[in-house]
Amino acid sequence: MRTRLAGLILVNALLLLGYVWCRLQTYDIGYDISRTLESLDRAQEMNARLKLEHTSLTSPQRLRQVAEERLGLVPLAPSQRVIVEVPPPK
């Protein structure tokens, strides 16, 4: 009888410990997720900033300005275009 009671108490104690351990793990993982989401957020913001920078630098307006002012390029005149007729592959 005593052994059974001791066994029951032990099982209950283990179950309680297991429950507490699970709760602690949940909180621990919760902290991890919070930290990961924060870094994801930072990465997304960085991504947005870089995307804006990339878009500004490759804007057609800017490229045209650089091509004309810095490199001295001009758009092709219609007479400078040569249409090359490529025969279909045999």
Binding site: P75, L76, A77, P78, R81, V82, I83, V84, E85, V86, P87
Partner: peptide
């Protein structure tokens, strides 16, 4: 039109160079 049409894939009707 001189820049837009070629960009949109409409090329001038001019004698072209044919690759043999």
């Amino acid at each position: 039109m001189s820049e837009l049409l070629p960009y949109l894939g409409a090329y001038p009707e001019m004698p072209g160079v044919r690759l043999s």
